[in-house]
Amino acid sequence: MSQTALIPAPPLLHMHPLRVYWEDTDAGGVVFYANYLKFFERARTEWLRAAGVGQHELRERTGAIFIVIDTRVRYLRPARLDDALQIAVTRAELGRATLTVHQHAWRGDELLCEGNIQIACVDHTSFRPQRIPSDVLSRLTPP
């Protein structure tokens, strides 16, 4: 049995817990709007890791890296200092060289922020698009 077969596909929904710290807030004690993109990035990284895709290892092995090429974010309610959040990641579309995910920031059952993030696979030196390696594609495709 191959090692790839032992690594499960990512769940349809991945939840990443996160606490809001001083560094995340503005002078009003509210999460600064750009920090939601950081929260989303952390959750995507952990989603990939849960699927057996380490981004450093991917670059070393294939020369490929993932970069964000488009974001659409909608802010609904503020998060504040010490809030416990859950950042959701759901794979929406998977192409040959791109990946789109839907992401949501929740405080309990209250939706605070939502976004669609499009990611491209590129060569880490030239930044030219390249296909997502087949082993990564298989890990990001539910059985």
Results as ranks from 00 to 15, higher is better:
Phe32Gly: 05
Ala79Arg: 00
Ile132Leu: 10
Cys113Gln: 03
His104Glu: 15
Leu18Pro: 01
Arg139Pro: 01
Thr125Ile: 10
Thr90Lys: 08
Leu13Met: 05
Arg131Ile: 07
Arg107Met: 11
Leu18Ser: 04
Ile117His: 01
Leu112Cys: 07
Ala5Pro: 01
Leu111Glu: 05
Pro142His: 12
Gln103Thr: 15
Asp123Leu: 00
Asp82Gln: 10
His16Gly: 05
Gly95Arg: 13
Ser134Gln: 15
Arg42Leu: 13
Gln118Asp: 08
Ala43Leu: 06
Ile7Val: 14
Arg80Cys: 13
Trp106Ser: 06
Ala105Tyr: 02
Asp26Met: 04
Gly29Leu: 11
Arg49Leu: 14
Val73His: 00
Arg42Ser: 09
Val53Cys: 10
Arg44Pro: 08
Val30Thr: 10
Asp109Thr: 08
Gly108Thr: 01
Asn35Cys: 02
Thr25Gln: 12
Arg107Phe: 08
Ile119Met: 06
Val101Lys: 01
Asn116Gly: 05
Ala34Glu: 12
Gly28Gln: 14
Arg72Glu: 15
His124Tyr: 13
Ser134Ile: 13
Arg19Thr: 14
Thr98Ile: 12
Val136Met: 10
Gln118Ile: 06
His124Trp: 11
Leu137Ser: 06
Glu114Phe: 09
Asp24Trp: 05
Phe40Ala: 10
Ala88Ser: 11
Pro78Tyr: 11
Glu110Gln: 14
Pro142Cys: 05
Ile119Gln: 02
Ala43Thr: 11
Gln130Met: 15
Asp109Phe: 03
Ser138Phe: 02
Gly29His: 11
Asp109Arg: 06
Arg80Ala: 06
Val20Ser: 03
Thr98Pro: 11
Thr98Tyr: 12
Leu99Cys: 15
Pro17Asp: 10
His102Thr: 14
Ala27Ser: 14
Gln118Leu: 05
Ala5Met: 05
Leu76Thr: 04
Asp26Cys: 10
Arg91Pro: 04
Arg77Leu: 13
Thr71Tyr: 06
Thr4Met: 09
Gln86Phe: 08
Ile132Gly: 04
Ala9His: 10
Gln3Tyr: 12
Pro142Ser: 13
His124Gln: 06
Ala92Met: 10
Cys121Trp: 04
Trp106Lys: 03
Arg139Phe: 02
Tyr36Asn: 01
Val53Tyr: 03
Thr125Gly: 08
Ala92Thr: 15
Gln86Lys: 07
Trp47Ile: 04
Asp24Ser: 10
Ala50Trp: 00
Phe40Asn: 03
